[in-house]
Structure formats: structure tokens, C-alpha cells
Design a protein around this nucleic acid. Structure first.
Length: 496
RNA sequence: GACCGCUUAGCUCAGCCGGUAGAGCAACUGACUUUUAAUCAGUAGGCCGUGGGUUCAAAUCCCACAGCGGUCACCA
């Protein structure tokens, strides 16, 4: 079998690895004790003049990203940044210089020496000792263009992360955003909880589920599409006045730049609060995050500048629809009238669509594409919101809002429906829709109704998609950029 | 799910009016030795995504399939 180009490259590195072993060194030693990170050194010596030598001894470790002048200059990359290692025959012992023969770009090495700044201004370590910490067997992508193949970046995220600082920064910012959310919630005294991911009844959202099977119980389970019904059970139980959960949700739907089958959301529930309070909460939380990450409430996304300053626009869905369509759907009493009005606007609606579904369809078509700046869209039709409490002033509506930024829904919240009899009716309507072929209609959760019968206090609840928020804050155009390992179709012949 | 596009060396890309497969980086051999995408000389490295078809001849034209991307549909 003829060796491919890649096989030859691997063979060369294997040869160096073997030689290193024969020289008595371990290509994969157990530990190392660097005392400085690259960026800390740049900070500490930022005032060191060009051409200055010091006697300050430091020890660093990192991956070799570049070798210049036959290894005289090694660029080491650690988790903080890069630092140059300088190996010169005048100052580096011959035995150490000999080790350069075993090195390749991509190897992880440790280096000790003294700090200096070259005459041309590069902070460097004049090496007196170098040590292999992990021999790399595969060539890294080209130093200048890096790894740009989109598929390779997601399939081999580790290579993407080695090569692309932007990818590292985005995922680090994601982590920081989640920490900020957690801090915010904990600071208000909310209790973080965990509820089942394996659900025997799908509930809390309209979505198509993943199904899995438990062998010992011989039972199918749905991967949760929302933790909502469990979290409200905890409120019923009085576990805490404020509970929240940050976790993965799973929806068996299409994949797009804004949709990953598994995504991360937060949901929170707060006793004795209503949806107006939730609007304040969402607005304040998002501002806290944007301000922490950017130091400003006006930040760019794509071609726009998004202004997160208060107050965010708060307007009812019906009046937004009326502004764009010139139709006051509130005056249309039946689904039939609504469907006709939508068709007159040139908007396709399902012939079985209810009044509320028509309003929602018209909203999606005419209003949503215009909601660039943060907007709380309020007071949705009742029949598309089976878990929300009826509006205190209008029986056709519920007390619900969705927050839109950059035309994306990033939050959804309501005054929670806590009348058990009404909840049962709403569930029954969903079941009827489901039986009529609506795959995304919700299922009857009898136990949840029982929980309501024990008494759910007046409660405000909200949920927010964290991935999309991270996209907004990191100016990422694809949800995959903010997920470490986005869902990809497996390759039939995985070759690397 | 529908439509459009992409797939060539480890990486980034040329080549696509059909006529023996190219460059830069990485690698290897050597030179040089305070570089910054180091430089210079040389060497090696390819099932041109997979499978069919047209043709004397296919990386190139046609069809199917796969993966990926974009747009739309569904959704957060």
C-alpha cells in the first residue's frame, strides 16, 4: 500500500518521537511546573526596553506554533497567548540545542530561561533548558491562513481552537456569559435546580421531541423540550420563591444558522410576580451581561448597532400587527374572518389555523423581520399560549411577552396560568389539536394539573435562549460558532 | 424537506473552452544564524469527495450519491 502524503508526515514525526525516546527522554512525561503564562509575562515586562537582557528566570509551557531560523526562535502558545523562546548557541547549552532536532510545530514543550526583549522589540525567553511535554504526531494547518474549512473547524474543533483565537474567545465569552447569568440569579437569592431530561410526557413547549428508550423499564422517554412544568411543580412545593435551571433542551427540528438540535436555555420562576416584572428582569439581566462583556450598551451585530439601553420598546402583538398590516385583528371575531384577512395580505395561512395562529403567522411575516432593536412583544393570543394566564383586561389574550433582538426571539415569559380547571381546559384543547394532526401541540400532563390543584401561587416565569444571546454578544453569525461541538451529520467514512 | 453552490497535496488555494496534476505554507536535505508569514537552493508528497456515464482521452462535460455551506420551510 503506497504511503500517502499524510502517512509520510506522520512517519517522520513518529521517527522523531522514537529517536527522542532512544536519547533517554520521555516524549510524554507526567507533569511540569511552569511559573508564568505568556500574557502575564507580556504584562509584567511591558516597559522593558528593546535590546534589554534581564536575569529574571522564568519557566513556561505551551504548544510550538512557529519555528524560525532552524529553531532559534520558537513561538510558544499557551492558554493565555504567545511567547517567543530564543535558543542560541551562545547561551543555550549544546545538549539543549540538540533537542531542537526532535521538535516539530505542534509539539507541547516547556522552556526555562531569562527574560529579554530583542532589539526589534519581541519579548523572549533566552532558553537554557527545554523539555518535550507532549510530542505531536500530526501537522498543524498552515500558519498564515490557519484552518478555515468550515466543516473541519466544527468536526475537529480542537484544531480550530489551536489555530483560531477568535474561536477560543467566542467560547470563552460563552462560558463567562453563563457565569454572569448564574451570578445574577444567585445574587437575587434564586435557587438553581435540576429537573429531568428524560420525560415520559412532553411538556412546556410546542416542539417535536427526540425519543429514546429505557431498557430496564422498557419505556420510551422524550428528551425534554422545556423544563417548565417541572420548575413550576417546585414552586408549588415551596422549594424556593425563586427557582431557575440552566440546561440543555432538545428539539427534533431543522438545523439552521440559528438552530441546533440541542441548545442551552435558562428558565426562571418567581412567586408573586407577573409578566411585567419578568420584562424588567430579562431587560436588566441582558444589560448586565452586555455591559460586563463590552463595557457599553451599544454594541455591533452584523450590519447593525444594537442599543440595549432602557427602556426597551414594549408593545402588544396585536398593535404591532396592526401597524404593519393596517388590520386590527381584535375586530375580527372568528378564525374564518382572520384567515380571510391574512390571505388578503398575501400571507399563506393553514386552512385550519385558529384566530391566534393567524395573528401569529401575520406577526411572523410582517413584524418580526423589523424587530432589530430590543423589543418586548406583549399580550399574545390565548390559543397559542396554553400555559399562560389570561390577560386581566382581555379574555382573548394572555399575559405573555417575547423579547426580540435582531429579529430573533430570545426570551419568552408569562404570568403563569395557575387555575387548575382552566389549565385542564387548555390542555384538552391542545390534545384536540394534536389529535387533529398538530404534531407540536402539547400533551395532557395530568400530574401537572394535580400539582396546580394543590395551589401554585401567582408566579411570573421566563425563559431565554442562551446560545442566541451569546451570538448577539459575540457578534457570531452562526449558532455553531457559540457551541463547542455543534451537531453534524456523521461521515460515512471518517478519514482524517 | 426544497432550491442553489462547494469538495484538487497535511493546510490555504490555482487549474474547469476535455489532451500526462500546479503554487505557497508545512515536511525532508543543505546553506544562513537576532527572526516576526525569516531568507536562499534542492527533494519528496495527489483514488482531483464516492460511484456510474459520454469520449480515442475526464480534475474539467452529464447523471446519481455523500458531506458541508447559503437561502427558504418548521422552530428558539
Amino acid at each position: 500500500m503506497p504511503a500517502t502524503g499524510q502517512a509520510e508526515l506522520l512517519k517522520v514525526r513518529q521517527g522523531k518521537c522514537d529517536s527522542l525516546r532512544q536519547s533517554g527522554a520521555d516524549p510524554y512525561p507526567y507533569k511540569y511546573a511552569p511559573d508564568h503564562k505568556a500574557t502575564a509575562l507580556h504584562e509584567k515586562y511591558k516597559d522593558l526596553e528593546n535590546g534589554t537582557e534581564t536575569t529574571d528566570q522564568v519557566c513556561v509551557a505551551g504548544r510550538i506554533m512557529a519555528m524560525r531560523n532552524n529553531g532559534m526562535f520558537l513561538d510558544l502558545q499557551d492558554s493565555s497567548g504567545k511567547i517567543q523562546l530564543f535558543c542560541h548557541k551562545d547561551s543555550t547549552p549544546a545538549g539543549e540545542l540538540a533537542k531542537l532536532d526532535y521538535l516539530d510545530i505542534g509539539d507541547i514543550i516547556g522552556g526555562e530561561g531569562t527574560i529579554r526583549r530583542t532589539p526589534r522589540g519581541e519579548l523572549s525567553i533566552r532558553a537554557v533548558k527545554i523539555q518535550m511535554l507532549s510530542k505531536s504526531m500530526r501537522p498543524l494547518p498552515e500558519k498564515y491562513h490557519g484552518l478555515s474549512d468550515i466543516e473541519a473547524r466544527y468536526r475537529q474543533r480542537y484544531v480550530d481552537l489551536i489555530m483560531n483565537e477568535e474561536s477560543r474567545n467566542t467560547l470563552r465569552t460563552r462560558s463567562r456569559i453563563i457565569a454572569l447569568i448564574r451570578n445574577y440569579m444567585n445574587d437575587m437569592g434564586a435557587l438553581e435546580v435540576e429537573t429531568p431530561i428524560l420525560n415520559s410526557i412532553m411538556g412546556g413547549a410546542s416542539a417535536k421531541p427526540f425519543v429514546t428508550h429505557h431498557n430496564a423499564l422498557d419505556t420510551d422517554f422524550y428528551l425534554r423540550v422545556s423544563p417548565e412544568l417541572y420548575l413550576k411543580r417546585l414552586i408549588v412545593g415551596g422549594l424556593a420563591d425563586d427557582v431557575y435551571e440552566i440546561g440543555r433542551l432538545f428539539r427534533n427540528e431543522g438545523i439552521s444558522p440559528k438552530h441546533n438540535p440541542e441548545f442551552t436555555a435558562i428558565e426562571g420562576y418567581h412567586v408573586y410576580k407577573d409578566y411585567h416584572d419578568m420584562m424588567d428582569l430579562v431587560e436588566n439581566l441582558v444589560q448586565t451581561i452586555v455591559l460586563d462583556i463590552h463595557g457599553s450598551l451599544k454594541i455591533p451585530y452584523g450590519d447593525y448597532e444594537i442599543d440595549y439601553s432602557s427602556p426597551w420598546k414594549r408593545q402588544s402583538m396585536l398593535s404591532l400587527v396592526e401597524e404593519e398590516s393596517k388590520i386590527d385583528f381584535m375586530t375580527l371575531k372568528t378564525a374564518d374572518e382572520a384567515r380571510t384577512a391574512a390571505r388578503d395580505l398575501g400571507i399563506f395561512v393553514d386552512p385550519k389555523a385558529s384566530w391566534g395562529q393567524v395573528v401569529e403567522t401575520v406577526f411572523d411575516a410582517l413584524v418580526e423581520p423589523k424587530l432589530i432593536q430590543p423589543t418586548h412583544v406583549m399580550d399574545h393570543p390565548l390559543d397559542i399560549s396554553p400555559l399562560a394566564k389570561v390577560h386581566r383586561e382581555n379574555p382573548r389574550l394572555v399575559e405573555r411577552f417575547e423579547t426580540f433582538i435582531n429579529c430573533w426571539e430570545i426570551a419568552n415569559a408569562f404570568s403563569e396560568l395557575n387555575d387548575p380547571a382552566v389549565q385542564r381546559e387548555r390542555f384538552n384543547a391542545q390534545v384536540a389539536a394534536r389529535n387533529a394532526g398538530d404534531e407540536e401541540a402539547q400533551m395532557l400532563d395530568e400530574d401537572y394539573v394535580v400539582a396546580l390543584e394543590y395551589g401554585l401561587p401567582p408566579t411570573g416565569g421566563w425563559g431565554m435562549g442562551i446560545d442566541r444571546l451569546v451570538m448577539l454578544v459575540t457578534n457570531s453569525s452562526n449558532i455553531r460558532d457559540v457551541i463547542c461541538f455543534p451537531t453534524l451529520k456523521p461521515k460515512k467514512n471518517p478519514d482524517q
